[in-house]
Each structure stands twice: as C-alpha cells, then as structure tokens.
Amino acid sequence: MRDKALRYIEALGGRENIRELDGCITRLRATLVDPSKVDEAKLRAAGMIGRPIRMGNGIQIVVGTHAELIATEINKILRGG
C-alpha cells in the first residue's frame, strides 16, 4: 500500500503539489497547487481506473474500492510518516 501511495504522490506532481487529499470509497479527491503537473500515464501505471476528473485545482482519481486505505497512506507520507 505504501508503494502504491508513493506512486500516486509522484503521479500527482509530488508532495509539494498536493494541498489536500481525501479518500472516498473508490476515488481519491485531491486539491492541487498546479494541476498541470499531473502525469496521467503515471496515474494509470499506479492503478487509476478510467480517466481523471478535473475541476479547477481539484482532481478525482478512481482507484478501486480501497481508496480510503490509499488516501490514509498518502496522508501519512505527506505528514512525514
């Protein structure tokens, strides 16, 4: 899970680019500093399903029914864990 979390962080443009991130049941919902830094190929390689949903600085990424676990892991890493 930690490995997956790290891959999503990198695909989202790195930890400095993630302002806030939450996990719904199947998708990660993030607010980004610069949405143009998102690497969609890397998102797909990390396990993204379908396409990212973008709204301004916000992005939603469908990852499967374990999204809350991944989000928890990402937030642990973002807080320096």
């Binding site: 199947t26 998708r27 399903i49 379908g50 469908v62």
Partner: peptide
C-alpha cells in the same frame, strides 16, 4: 457523476 455514468466502476 461521470465516474458512474461512464461506467468507470
């Protein structure tokens, strides 16, 4: 909601 309408899940 495109995630459901586009059958991503």
């Amino acid at each position: 909601d495109p995630v459901f309408a586009e059958r991503m899940l």
